[in-house]
């Protein structure tokens, strides 16, 4: 009985790790779990704009915001005011609102914050993929 469960768990693990997860990751476009290292040379940049109480706008460097982020996220944000290479930023794309909230909490003068993520495919003939988030700070 115990051996049967071990054989079954082994088969499930092999199917999951070798086929199901890479295939689903490949299909959803993130390719994070499909061993796609070095297969593309896409790049991204992050633009952060804060609006102050007097209505003026300020650009905020992602590197500055990185100081309030975890190690991995800080690494992804460092230097991202210009296009830079790196791994999949799908999780950042899905959480831009959270990043805008971080800017709100660390920048006392900001009334609202806009965060824009531009993803540039390695093929220059393809268009930029732009995702944005807006957050009111007060």
């Amino acid at each position: 009985m115990v051996r049967d469960s071990i054989v079954l768990s082994r088969a499930v693990a092999v199917a999951l790790i070798c086929v199901v997860l890479p295939l689903s990751s490949y299909i959803d476009g993130s390719s994070a779990l499909s061993w796609s290292m070095y297969s593309h040379a896409s790049s991204y940049r992050v633009r952060i704009t804060a609006r102050d109480a007097d209505g003026s706008f300020r650009e905020i460097a992602p590197t500055r915001v990185a100081e309030s982020c975890s190690e991995g996220t800080a690494t992804a944000l460092a230097g991202a005011d210009h296009f830079r290479g790196g791994g999949s930023v799908g999780s950042l794309r899905a959480n831009l609102d959270g990043l805008a909230e971080v800017v709100c909490t660390t920048d006392a003068a900001a009334v609202s914050v806009d965060v824009v993520l531009d993803e540039r495919p390695s093929n220059p003939s393809l268009p930029l993929r732009t995702t944005s988030a807006h957050r009111d700070c007060r």
Binding site: V14, C18, S34, W35, S36, S39, H40, S122
Partner: peptide, 18 residues
């Protein structure tokens, strides 16, 4: 299977014009 799948998926991922 893990080793073979890593090579196979890495090769498949590179079947693009880039």
């Amino acid at each position: 299977f893990l080793v073979m799948s890593v090579y196979a998926w890495a090769g498949i991922a590179k079947l693009n014009s880039d």
